[in-house]
Amino acid sequence: MERIELTAAWAKGQEVLAEVTKESGVRASKCYQCGKCSAGCPVAFAMDKTPREIMRLVQLGLMDEALQSHTIWLCASCDTCSTRCPREVDIARVMETLRIIAKRKGSVAEKKMDLFHDLFLKSVENNGRVHELGLILGFNIYGMQPLKDAHFGPSMLLKGKLSPLPHTIKDNGEVKKIFANVRKRGGKL
């Protein structure tokens, strides 16, 4: 395993660390590495690093490694970690913030999951609401798996669970404005 030179890494990580602290409102130094977050995390089995290890990377300023991890994308935002943390560290919020920063930096370890969220928000921006059929179709086409879950389609349509056309709200101008205003304030959507 490669040896990490910690002082250089710390200096290099400062800028991103400051962003994480500011945007999440969480001081990573509060974490005492007990691992309760990872012990109860329902997605830990699929992660390349446990949530505790992500917190450790942040504590040491090893931000690139944190931002490149799959963990931050696999986090289901279920809040189990934050709920049980004995130091009241909002770990889920840190994961969320790291994801946002990773995306901003174009360092996306789970491209397909990211695509889903992009399409989701596109749908919200266009229609004011999510058009689930459009979202799934788009996701499958862009995700190069056009037939994924297709077998649900007919019965869903039949049960009235999927509408072929999006529900668009009348006041959608307002929602579009929300997106525009967030962009104006620096939001990268």
């Binding site: 945007e23 913030t97 946002i100 919200v124 004011g128 009348k170 929300i178 967030v182």
Partner: peptide, 25 residues
């Protein structure tokens, strides 16, 4: 009337402000 999507569960992974603004409306 004319409620909009709250952004769950994509907005909060993309932008914190958007994640608050969508439900806020």
């Amino acid at each position: 009337p004319e409620w909009n999507c709250c952004g769950a569960s994509s907005a909060h992974l993309t932008d914190h402000l958007l994640a608050l603004a969508l439900p806020a409306r």
